Each structure stands twice: as C-alpha cells, then as structure tokens.
Computed example of a mutant assay.
Amino acid sequence: MVRVALIAESFLPHMNGVTHSLLRVIDHLSARGDDVLVLAPRAAELPSEHAGYNIEGLPAFALPRYPNVRIATVTVGRVVRLLRGFQPDVVHLASPFVLGLQAMLAAEQLGIPTVAIYQTDVPAYASRYGFPLAEPLLWQQVQRIHQRATLNLAPSSYALSQLHDHQIDRLRKWTRGVDTARFTPEKRDEAWRARIAPHGERIVGYVGRLAAEKQVEDLRVIATLPDVRLVIVGDGPLRARLEQLMPTAHFTGFLGGDELARAIASFDVFVHPGELETFCQTIQEAMASGVPVIATGRGGPLDLVDSSRTGWLYTPGNLHEMRMRVADLVGDDAKRAAFALAARETVRDRSWTAVCDALLAHYADAIRLNRLRPAAGWPVGPRASVTASRG
C-alpha cells in the first residue's frame, strides 16, 4: 500500500486534461486500497471527497475573465501541516505552477519525495495570449519547480525535450491511457449524423476548449470545403467569436461521457490545430473511436499520429496544407477506412490500468532516488545521465 498526496492546480468540477488524468489515477489507487489526500484550490463547487478520499480545498482566487482558473494563496507552512498530518510516501504534483511550488517546498522541508507531472505548456500560453515577454519568466517558474523535483514525468517526446532544453533532470516519459470501451467505433450514430449533416456531408470534427491556445480559428479553412460539415465540440471564452467567424459550422457546446463518445465516433475525420499540446488526449479518443486524425506537426501529436497511416501531420501554421489533408481524406473512402482501422489498432492496448501501474513504478523510483538526494539539493546544470534517465 502507498500513501499519495495529490496536489492539483485545478480539479473538479472543472474538467480538463489535468483533472481527467487525476481522476483516473485516483480510481486506480482506490481499486488497490491505497491512501490518497487531494489538495486543490477552493471553489464553491469543489467536492469534499472523491472515491472515498478527502479533498482539502485551499484558499484561492479566480483569474479575471477566467473563473475556472483559480490560483491558490496558501502558505508553505499550511501545506507542511497538511502533509505532516497525512504522512504520504510520495507527493504527486499535477501540472505544478503556484500551489505546486508551495507543495514542493513543503515536501522538501519534510524530506518527502516528489513526482512532478509536466502537462501544460504555460510559458507558451503567454505568447498566445499576447504577452510574449512573459514567456522566459514563466519558464523560470517551471524550472524552479521541476529542477527541485525528485522525478519529472512528461507525456511525450516533445515535452521531454522541452524540459531537457531548460536544464531539467531526472526525466521519465509517462503517457496517458484511453478508455477503449467508451471510445469505440460502435458508438457511431447514423441518426446523429443525419441530424448534423442532413445533406450527407462528411463530418469533420474538433473537440476541446474554445480558447486562444487551441487555435480553433484555424479551422475556418475547413468550414468552406464543399460537402463538408465542420462540427466543433466544446466551450470556452472564444465561442461567440468563433461562431461569428465560422457561421456554417455546428457548435455543440460541452459534451461529456457517452454523448462525447457518440459524437467523436460519428466523425469522419478528426482535426486538432493546436500547436501547444504536450500530449492531446482527444487525439487518442478519436483514434480509439476509429477516426483518422489530422493534427499539427508539433508537440504531443508527433508521438500519437503516424502520418500517412493513422492520419496526417501538417506543417505548423500551414493552413493550406491542413485544408488539403482534410480534402484528401474526406474525398477518399478507402484511404479513410484504412487510416481509421490503423488508428484503432494503434491505441487498442493503451489502457489506463497499464498507465497507472507505470505511474506506481515511477513513485517507487522517486522514493529510491530521494535517498540519494544531496543535502544541498539536486544539482542544476549540464548532466551526463539525462539520456539514461528517460526510460
């Protein structure tokens, strides 16, 4: 049995990639009978428990214009007291930035190993939101956290390279699972398709937040393709603007559970234009649903899409190429079917059980590494062991 303190920069009820992964981890630890404490920024809708585990809501404020983004204002001393009371074997830092740093410092004081999960490219978000000068400052914050962590996990080869290039050590690759029982070609719904595309158009779909970092506006070049119905699943601050930009597209709003699975399985092609993805879980869900994927050739999709076999990767920023790749697949039934079959086969064995078992092995590795930690902390700078540490 292992005792794990999970530190979440965001958590329920706000669903995103970080929350989704944490819920899967919690369910896995619960099934094993492990002990878990969750620390997360306090919100009115934050539950007090999940899967029988206590959720400690910490003082926080919402960012202006983004009420779902809450910044914890807790002191290191408060986190020290909470961790001391729980006595975890390991502290799991989920996409750490503000609360994660406080928990990192608290764990250091108590001598508890930390596993930091790099999942969100916060520095690049600054440039996308019009603050390019903030990017190097935000990378300093990322370095401050991850250079101190006992072990750092990243979901893709691209994300590992980012951390390595910023002088961050003790790296491992930890990917994500996909629920192939929920996301399956069997959920394809012809009645749903007939309602969305009553004239028999091919359905090209996107799933994700409608926010600047996702570059959803790039899909405008697809909306004008003949015999194509663009479907955009999700919600966010840019929805009204995007609806004006792409008046012929169908916006479903947020979908979850079986509704989401049905929508994805009913697509003919899945497109994701975002260049800032460290992984991109919705690509895996589309592939599990037997839907070929077209994505930008940057970030997490590089590991997920086998170009010319399960979909196409296009040159970042080249919207003409993206449009041509979509036209290629919607116009070729045989190729699309072959890509769809290969996509499903590629993710068939990527279960969350296997992924969470790998995480437990990383926890054990961090506990071992913590015994080797120098009294002055981990050294920062050139290292000879990084390549070997990327198992």
Rank of each mutant, 00 (worst) to 15 (best):
A116I: 01
P155I: 11
S156T: 11
A134R: 10
V79E: 01
L137V: 13
T73D: 08
I117Q: 09
D89K: 08
N152R: 10
Q109A: 11
L138Q: 11
A106L: 07
N152L: 07
F97K: 14
A94M: 15
F61C: 02
L99Q: 00
A124E: 14
A124H: 10
A116L: 03
P67G: 03
R65V: 05
P123V: 09
Y118D: 07
G130A: 05
D89E: 13
R84P: 02
V79C: 04
A149K: 07
R81N: 10
L93F: 14
A116G: 12
G100C: 04
G130I: 04
P113T: 06
L99D: 00
T73E: 08
R144D: 09
L151R: 13
F131D: 08
R78I: 03
F97V: 13
R70V: 00
A106T: 07
G77T: 13
R65P: 00
R78T: 12
I71P: 00
R148P: 05
R84S: 12
P67A: 09
P96K: 12
G100L: 01
A154H: 10
A94T: 11
A106C: 10
R70A: 00
P155G: 12
L105T: 15
I71R: 00
Y66V: 08
A134K: 06
T73W: 04
P123K: 11
E135G: 11
Y125N: 07
A60V: 01
V98R: 04
